[in-house]
């Protein structure tokens, strides 16, 4: 537990000091959503109809942006092999790094969401559903994405490859996230959606750090 907190704290410290990572993720999120009124026209009805989907897709893409660097920097400067040589399970280390990733991308996205809901004229019935699905959906995205981030370590092409690996696996989270918001807007019960999303998160919590640690171990075998 001590190790977990140390690593989360270090990663947050690094994110704060070396830059604007979180700010850029949020900027990308807002810009990506902003493109849609230009693409489909500013008519409030159309925007309201696609708001949930657009915000969810943009959030998904933005959380993928910083994923490439999740393990890459530690891999290049030798920190990752030292982390793997500590007397605590590598799975815990991976979980700590995923937590830090969510705190620096998922959480800022969540904070920016109300603004985008206004931009996209999201019906007010869907607002809380949107926030809630993003709150339980973005951790799943960070968890699943971490496997991809670990698999591409040391590969010739990083970012594009990562999106090819990760995006198909993101589809279930997207489907349930968006349909929950759409359901809330049309006044349907959405408990089932939320339970399934929570189920995805609960399943990803142990499995993804395990698979990620496995991928890191074989990446360090060079």
């Amino acid at each position: 537990m001590n190790t977990f907190i140390s690593i989360v704290r270090r990663d947050l410290q690094l994110a704060m000091r070396q830059g604007m990572d979180s700010v850029m993720v949020v900027a990308f999120f807002i810009l990506a959503v902003m493109l849609f009124p230009f693409g489909v026209g500013p008519e409030a009805n159309i925007l309201a109809r696609i708001a949930a989907g657009v915000i969810w897709v943009a959030a998904l893409l933005s959380s993928m942006l910083s994923l490439e660097r999740l393990f890459q920097i530690d891999y290049e400067d030798g920190s990752l092999e030292l982390l793997a040589l500590q007397p605590c399970a590598l799975e815990i280390t991976v979980m700590a790094k995923i937590t830090a990733h969510w705190l620096t991308t998922g959480l800022p996205l969540l904070i920016a969401t109300p603004l985008l809901a206004v931009f996209m004229s999201l019906p007010s019935d869907g607002f809380w559903a949107l926030l809630f699905t993003l709150a339980i959906g973005t951790p799943s995205l960070s968890l699943i994405g971490a496997i991809g981030a670990a698999l591409i370590l040391g590969s010739r092409r990083g970012g594009v490859l990562l999106s090819l690996l990760v995006l198909p696996l993101y589809i279930p989270v997207l489907i349930f996230g968006v349909s929950a918001v759409d359901g809330a807007i049309s006044g349907l019960p959405i408990k089932a959606h939320l339970l399934i999303m929570a189920g995805l998160l609960v399943a990803a919590l142990p499995l993804c750090p395990w698979a990620g640690a496995g991928a890191i171990k074989q990446a360090l075998e060079t």
Binding site: L151, I152, G154, A211, Q218, A219
Partner: peptide
């Protein structure tokens, strides 16, 4: 993924995962 590494052994392990 299996073709993204200079070392083919690494590629097959990563893609197996």
């Amino acid at each position: 993924l299996s073709n993204a590494f200079d070392d083919p052994a690494r590629g097959s392990k990563a893609s197996s995962i």
